[in-house]
């Protein structure tokens, strides 16, 4: 799922990132670790419309017991959760800041993510902004870019394969029910997804 409105929509390949950038911003250990430990995700640009990608992602994360905190300039409630106009207005701890806004706006959200003490700054599939990454990293946050948090969750909890998608997860270890497994290796070329 991606943010494909506005400036971020000219995506024609699996990833906008170079091999080195993928190693830094899409490392399976970082992604798995983030998904396995996150208990709250602030979603910047969460739509009020039920058929938008961000709404799908938020619904999915909620179903996995993750607290979602919508950030939207006008709405009051989305998916039964109180909406805040900016990240700085959120009165509770935020583990992950997940962004569904055009790439050029991302440095602002990176600075806010640092201010509120978030642990991970995650730009959705189709989004890449080096300046934002630098700001978040300097503030002590891990940075993930150009990946969908729902796809990644489905990849590592095994549910994405119910739809015939290539998860790239390859292991002879027994699955664990409802768990993001830490021992699964990922076929390298599929990490382009």
């Amino acid at each position: 799922m991606g943010s494909r409105s506005g400036a971020a929509c000219d995506l024609t390949s699996h990833s906008l990132l170079t091999v080195e950038q993928k190693a830094e911003y899409q490392a399976p250990s970082l992604v798995r670790g983030t998904l396995g430990s996150a208990s709250s995700v602030a979603i910047v640009g969460l739509s009020t419309k039920r058929q938008k990608a961000s709404y799908f992602v938020a619904t999915f994360l909620k179903s996995r017991g993750i607290k979602i905190i919508p950030v939207h300039p006008k709405a009051d409630w989305i998916l039964g959760e109180k909406v805040y106009p900016t990240l700085n207005d959120i009165p509770e701890p935020v583990d992950v800041v997940n962004v569904f806004r055009p790439a050029h706006e991302c440095p602002i959200y990176a600075a806010q993510a640092v201010d509120i003490g978030a642990k991970v700054f995650w730009l959705q599939l189709g989004l890449f902004n080096e300046e934002a990454a630098t700001i978040a990293s300097a503030g002590g946050l891990d940075v993930i870019m150009d990946l969908c948090i729902k796809m990644e969750y489905g990849r590592y909890d095994g549910t994405m394969r119910f739809l015939g998608m290539n998860t790239g997860v390859l292991t002879s270890k027994k699955a664990q029910i409802g768990r993001i497994s830490s021992h699964q290796d990922v076929h390298a070329s599929e990490c382009l997804l």
Binding site: M1, G2, R4, R50, Q51, A53, L125, G126, M151, L163
Partner: peptide
Amino acid sequence: HNLRFYDTFGLH
């Protein structure tokens, strides 16, 4: 319900 498959599911 007017789902836009490419917008919502991207590469899928």
